[in-house]
């Protein structure tokens, strides 16, 4: 666990991750002999910043590109265009001063190894995100083993320690189990342990609770908050559930078809949603209170796939406020309509 104690953890408030103009397209119908003519614009010109110790919720419907953003940030995917810069401890440009922002495209080779210690990911599916043939010890120790951190016995200690931290006690009863012997909630604890064992500064959590039962879900959400707070970890929380994002995050970014349409401090965004899509999303979330009456649905039509989207606002065809101006001009730019509350819409 003392893997990177040589480096001082980033002080809260430092800009940890900065994304600007991030775009990722996936070709449609490409084969060995045919070049793709259409592209899915999974992520299109997305920009945001995340400070050390901060938490950002990325919310949207399935297919809006939120998971792609997460994968781009942990370098599971390479962007088509745009920049991601990181200020990570122990990952400095060789000759520069401490904490010079590092471009994602410059991270490779030896630096990629250091990057993998600083940036981790928790996956959605607790059943599929662990190799069924490897024990819990193997799974959690994997980042340590591939990075050559500690001896085998050191790693047993480190894994035992982190198992206690995530509430799987006593560790000896879990070390040599296989994932299928654990419940969904326990597995997701193992997934958290695997991500945190290298003491990262930034974690992308991709819907870590969406496949869990109600009861274990709360445990995982509370655990993640405690650990992130205690260890000073910033996280990007990808989810389709606004209620979960509200509970987990300082700020929320709402995505629609590859674009962030609204970004703001959580309570402010929920109390005062500006973008018509955010409003529609909010009015559709069921509330666990039989006396609560929600407003009628405000948008029409169905979500389409962002294959070669037309010019104009992405939300034009479903928007209750849409005008010709929205159709004829490019997708609206991000504007700060209230302090730290950003919206991309012509009509608000």
């Amino acid at each position: 666990m003392e893997a990177n104690q040589a480096h001082t953890p980033p002080a809260a408030g430092d800009q940890l991750v900065s994304v600007s103009g991030l775009t990722r397209q996936f070709p449609v119908g490409r084969s060995l002999f045919r070049r793709a003519t259409s592209f899915i614009h999974a992520v299109d010109d997305v920009s945001f910043q995340l400070n050390a110790g901060d938490s950002l919720g990325l919310v949207g419907e399935s297919g809006c590109g939120k998971t792609t953003v997460g994968k781009l940030l942990v370098k599971l995917l390479e962007p088509t265009s745009g920049r991601i810069t990181y200020r990570l401890p122990g990952l400095d440009v060789a000759e520069g001063p401490e904490n010079v922002p590092l471009e994602a495209s410059a991270i490779n080779g030896r630096r990629l190894r250091a990057f993998r210690r600083q940036v981790q990911m928790i996956f959605q599916d607790p059943y599929e995100s662990m190799n069924p043939r490897r024990t819990i010890y193997d799974t959690i120790a994997e980042p340590l083993a591939v990075q050559g951190m500690g001896t085998v016995l050191d790693r047993v200690d480190m894994v035992s320690e982190i198992l206690m931290l995530v509430g799987l006690t006593p560790p000896a009863t879990f070390l040599f189990r296989h994932p299928h012997e654990l419940s969904g909630g326990q597995r997701q604890r193992v997934a958290i342990a695997r991500a945190l064992v290298v003491e990262p500064s930034f974690v992308v959590a991709d819907e870590p609770t969406s496949m869990l039962d109600v009861s274990s879900r709360t445990g995982i959400m509370n655990l993640m908050q405690q650990l992130a707070h205690g260890l000073g970890i910033a996280y990007l929380y990808v989810t389709h559930d606004l209620a979960v994002a509200r509970y987990m995050c300082h700020r929320i970014a709402v995505m629609y078809l590859g674009k962030i349409v609204e970004l703001g401090e959580t309570e402010e965004l929920l109390r005062n949603p500006l973008h018509p899509y955010t409003r529609a999303l909010l009015s559709a979330v069921p509330v666990p209170n039989p006396e609560y009456r929600r407003g009628p649905p405000s948008i029409v039509g169905d979500l389409t796939a962002p294959i070669d989207p037309p010019e104009g606002c992405r939300f034009y065809d479903r928007c209750p406020l849409a005008t010709n101006h929205c159709r004829d001009n490019p997708h609206p730019a991000f504007e700060e309509k209230a302090p730290d509350h950003w919206v991309a819409c012509y009509e608000v």
Binding site: S215, M221, N222, A243, R246, V287, P288
Partner: peptide, 24 residues
């Protein structure tokens, strides 16, 4: 009560969610 207390909501005051510990 535990089931209801463990459900986050977008309406009303934000509250600490109850942990229902243990497994079924």
């Amino acid at each position: 009560a535990a089931l209801m207390g463990s459900f986050p909501s977008i309406a009303g005051e934000k509250r600490v969610l109850a942990n229902l510990s243990g497994e079924p």
